[in-house]
């Protein structure tokens, strides 16, 4: 419980910090710290479902302060969490480079996910959005450049944020885990120090 509250507080603090930081580093050069916390939860959090619920809460909190549709960041953060959690369980992510590459790829996917959900939910539906090439047009060369820039910045900050999540997990979760006596959904401990 302590670790859950600590990670939740970290996610909310990241949300507030990045809003202020964006005044100095205009997007896309400002890292999405709250999203990195979600990725950190996916990679380091032992409980699959509790991590999923945490990601949903942080996603909806992001929607509350962002100009997005309510649920847009939440959905994409849940998908980010799922991919990160599955990657942590299936791949060998020991070392900084695999984690950085995963963060970069996930961040790119997040950007395209935003464009796609916007086209589908604010445009005229999925079929129309795909058929008219609206998504490709909305992304464009400049859109790709923006997505790559933010993915790069997120990648640079990933180590620090995921490290803090990891520290919280190690600090609070060990005693909770030993009390519970196991990890959810076949968690093997790979990707976790």
């Amino acid at each position: 419980m302590k670790s859950t509250l600590a990670v939740l507080a970290l996610g909310l603090a990241a949300l507030m910090l990045q809003g202020g930081l964006a005044r100095a580093f205009a997007p896309p050069w400002c890292p999405d710290l709250a999203w990195l916390v979600v990725v950190g939860i996916g990679l380091r959090w032992p409980g699959f479902i509790s991590g999923f619920v945490l990601s949903a809460i942080l996603g909806f909190a992001m929607d509350a302060v962002s100009g997005s549709l309510l649920g847009q960041h939440a959905l994409l953060r849940l998908v980010s969490y799922l991919v990160a959690a599955i990657a942590a369980r299936q791949l060998d992510l020991s070392g900084g480079i695999p984690t950085a590459l995963l963060t970069f790829t996930l961040s790119l996917g997040y950007g395209f996910g935003i464009v796609t959900t916007r086209a589908v939910f604010l445009g005229s539906g999925l079929r129309s959005a795909l058929g008219s090439g609206f998504i490709a047009e909305a992304i464009g060369v400049e859109g790709v450049a923006v997505a790559v820039a933010q993915a790069f910045v997120n990648m640079l900050c990933a180590g620090a944020v995921i490290g803090i999540v990891e520290w919280i997990v190690n600090r609070f979760a060990d005693e909770e885990l030993s009390r519970r006596g196991g990890l959810a959904l076949g968690y093997s401990g790979r990707g976790r120090p």
């Binding site: 990045q18 202020g20 930081l21 997007p27 710290l33 960041h73 935003i114 464009v115 923006v146 933010q150």
Partner: peptide
């Protein structure tokens, strides 16, 4: 202005 949208996809 106290905060900016951090994602470049929304300008708010």
């Amino acid at each position: 202005i106290v905060g900016l949208d951090v994602t470049p996809w929304f300008r708010s």
